[in-house]
Amino acid sequence: MFPHERSLVAKLADKPFALVGVNSDPIEELPAIQKKEQITWRSFAAGPGGGEIAKAWNVRSWPTIYILDEDGVIRAKNLRDEAMEKKVEELLAAMATKKK
């Protein structure tokens, strides 16, 4: 998962795009994990099991992925790899067209 996400973040660095994580590791271990995996994006340190955040979002399998548009509306759930990337680019393209 990480290599793909790293390349996506790098590729879309100049676009209105953000990767936001909700991490389920012990909170004190998160800084070291982020360093080791070269994770440059921000994550909520939700604690083991994803704590209250994962509970509120009814997350029961990891990774669980949501894609939100610029208005915070859920546009896709659990797409992976190419399909995930395609959806993100589709939403960015729609945003660009809207602005014009």
Partner: peptide, 16 residues
């Protein structure tokens, strides 16, 4: 909601 105005990939992840 700090990311409103951007397309967001919200990823529930963990290494444990």
């Amino acid at each position: 909601s700090d990311y409103r105005g951007k397309v967001v990939l919200l990823d529930f992840w963990g290494e444990w």
